[in-house]
Design a protein around this nucleic acid. Sequence first.
RNA 1: UGUCCCAUGGUGUAAUUGGCAACACGUCAGGUUUUGGUUCUGUAAUUUAAGGUUCGAGUCCUUAUGGGACAACCA
Length: 583
Amino acid sequence: MTQQENTTESKKSLNFIEKIVQQDLVEGKNGGRLQTRFPPEPNGYLHIGHAKAIVMDFGIAEKFGGLCYLRMDDTNPQKEDLEYVRAIEEDIQWLGYKWGKVCYASDYFQDLWDFAEWCILTGKAYVDEQSSEEIAAQKGTPTQAGKNSPYRDRPATESLKLFREMNSGCVEPGKMILRAKIDMASPNMHFRDPIMYRVLNLPHWRTGTKWNAYPMYDFTHGQSDYLEGVTHSICTLEFVPHRELYDLFVTWIKEWKGDDGDINDNRPRQFEFNKLNLNYTLMSKRNLLILTNEGVVNGWDDPRMPTLCGIRRRGYSPQAILNFIDKIGYTTFDALNDIKLMEAACREDLNQRALRVSAVVDPVKLVIDNYPEDLVEEMTAINNPEDEDSGTHIIRFSRELYIERDDFMEDGGKKFMRLGPGKEVRLKNGYIIKCDEDPTKCIEKDAAGNIICIHATYDPESRSGMPGADRKIKGKTLHWVSTNHCVPCEVRDYSCLWTCENPRDAIKQYEKDHGVRGIDAMRPFLNPDSLKINKNAFIEEWASTLPVFTYLQFQRIGYYNVDKDSTPECPVFNRTVGLRDTK
RNA sequence: UGUCCCAUGGUGUAAUUGGCAACACGUCAGGUUUUGGUUCUGUAAUUUAAGGUUCGAGUCCUUAUGGGACAACCA
């Protein structure tokens, strides 16, 4: 970290969770320890919303000298897979974070089981044999108290016997569950005898066939935190109603462990911040899964996806993401962030990082009539004017070039600063050129009236670096490639997948109004033009030799990244984000 | 007709904890520039409402309004 960053860092005020952590440390809570965890369920790929949580969990540990574990929340073998575990690890490392160790909720299955038996024996839990419909009906509503289950007061010995049967593999899923005996009239729905264990009769990718009954999230998370030594269990706002239950189970497990220290010390505490909402973006894993399954996008790493692998392929740097997260902050307000802020953070970073190259994405031929037929000159191009250490590369110049079609206008008027009859422009790293006043002399058209070739003359004294190049001209500086010294390439331009600001709400509403679900409720809001493939582009030779994931700027166009689909014959580029355009 | 949470320029966040409302992005106008990029200078725009406490309120209290979360054998 540079000195400058250090000063800005120290000037910036802490977010509300950092303030809590700082205060707890001062007060010596939990023995002055700080330990957090990032607990993804390995049932899908991480997205930009997870990045916000990662920066919080890992970042706060880093900042205050604590520890952060990566914990796979693998309590539902129905949906989870090793493939996702690997991807999660890769994404976190890509962001630049290191974990103390990797843990699994399944590490605690035996503890959780023993603890559950103790809960039964001490009258805190019972086995319920009703159907899920019956249980739902008894649960009441937020405005109405629930009713007790007829099994609520069965003897502990009976519950214990049935609980053990639940894990035998002989009980059909749905026939029995273990419930905590709390309060069916609680205004907090999570307190109405929540489910602790359910029968799945499914093997688990880590524990094999040892378990047939698996613990629920609420009966796992706080206990795992406690057993691991987590001090600050930080999650998003939708878990606020779970906190009371979290605290209760932590209190119970301390009792079970014979941990008779102060109940307010040596225990994890849950804190909640606002999750990331981005306009024109759909975040939930469930919906992203639909998009990939239905082929709306080409896999989880499609550059239009908000997944970290998608964003990476799109061409964002980890630092760009970190900058963005830093800009939006952490509060308890359910904000809808503007995607433009993320793009601004990206430009800010890529401006420092990206190699400048010339690519012509909508080419028209330009012939320099007074330039020698067989001359080829090697021009020097600066790789990145923002970074003196980035060096230079060669771009070859000749009589026949491609320039952008929209850099020439037959009647552009006074305000059009680029090429046209009688107009003079500079070719970047090249010469000053000029078109004849007479349109018939500088424009070649086909039968349909389309411009197929532009003619100009160059000023031989104006080559970049020569004294003659220093003269001021009215026109702008244009980028170009030499027709014989460029490579055809594929350029993929992306825009938002969604046409409405808040696709989540729009889809939900559509589902309600039209009685359809899933992809059918999404289609009306999908942007048909979210991917534009351009196979008619040319790029300078040097750029075609760069490896996948190289950060590039197509000068005057935008930031681009080398895609994994590239071949030596045809490199493929993804548009990360366009240049700011104040034309 | 429940419980809990939230409300500061267009968007997101600050405000030394009750003491001059600011920062970033965006807007608009201009300077620099071999990228209509970058950079620099300037610009307009903010405490949801009403009442209360106080010398003093974005901050505390009350009420209203608006928004969010909660009723999966998901996490």
